[in-house]
Each structure stands twice: as C-alpha cells, then as structure tokens.
Amino acid sequence: MPGADGSLNVQVSPAITGRSIIRDGALVRDEWTWIDDDAPLPVLTRARDVLVSSARWRRDRAALLTRGGRVGVRLQTDELAASIADDVGHLALIEIHVHKFVDGRFYTTARLLRMRHGFTGELRATGDVLPDQLFFMRRCGFDSFELRQDKRVETALRALESFSVVYQGAEDQAPLYRRRALG
C-alpha cells in the first residue's frame, strides 16, 4: 500500500494486487496484463486485456487482434507518435514509458496521438512519472498514470489540481483567448 504514514485519503480496494493506476482522480486496480516479448500469449480466461511492446505488436498483430481481448501497446520515450499512427484504431490502450521525466518528447507524442491520429482509447504514462508533472501530462491527453513507486498518491492527486486557469489550448481546453471572448 502506498502512503506509509497512513495519510492516504483515497479509497483503495484491499483486493488490489500488482499495478495501481491513477485514473479519474482515484487510485484503481490495473486490469491490463503485460506480456513479455518472448512469452506466449495467454488464454483469454487468464488474461483478457494484454499489453505488449510495439515490436511484439508488429510481429503478432494478427494473433493479438483475433484472440478476443483488448490490445494495448507500450511505447518507449524514443518511439514517437508517427511510429504507431496507422494502428491506433486497433488499440484500447497506449502506454508511454517515461524513461526520464526531463525528456519531454512524450508530451508531443501524446498530443499527436490524440489530435492528429485520433486515438480515443486510454493513454497512460508509466516509468519516471512524478506528481509535479501530472498536470501537464493530463493536458496533453494522458488519462491514466502509474506513479513511480516511491511517490505519494496523495501528493499526485493534489498536483493534478494545481491550476484552475490555463492560458493555451491543449487536449483538454481551447485557448483562454477563445474562452475569454465568450465572457
């Protein structure tokens, strides 16, 4: 359980095992199963929704699409939006693994997946995901986050609400100058 000091004010199901994800302002259990590149695809009854690397996706695309469950792909920081653009219609989850939080390429990847390539599934950040960047990530189109393990969920949820005003347009809002004009 996160929050060693017991100050966590989020309802967490005691049944949670494995990964916990911040989604819609709460900590929830992750329903996705990561499959290593060399592991066999699991039967549907054991794991319905599977997450694979982009290499595995390209290799086993047909098998993944016909097995019946949902498919997600994990991108590394250096895999930019164009690398998966043609496939987004088949995917229910795109996870971007943040290698180092200061390497900001993934913000553009996220925005392009949403606005250019029309990805409407879940867009998730994992890896070096820290509370103080979540606000920016969400504005760029991320809707779920796996916080780095040593970070406090409480801080992260607070950071998501850092600002009630934003100037520029992104994946959540139009630019303020268009909203100001409306009064």
Binding site: V102, Y107, V166
Partner: peptide
C-alpha cells in the same frame, strides 16, 4: 504578451 500567455505553463513544452 500574447506569446507570454501562450508559453506560460505550456504543457507540451515544459521539458524541451
């Protein structure tokens, strides 16, 4: 000033 507002906390370009 228009650029200032656009660039202030631009979520995509905070880690160039």
């Amino acid at each position: 000033e228009i650029i200032r507002q656009w660039s202030t906390f631009h979520p995509e370009f905070a880690f160039l």
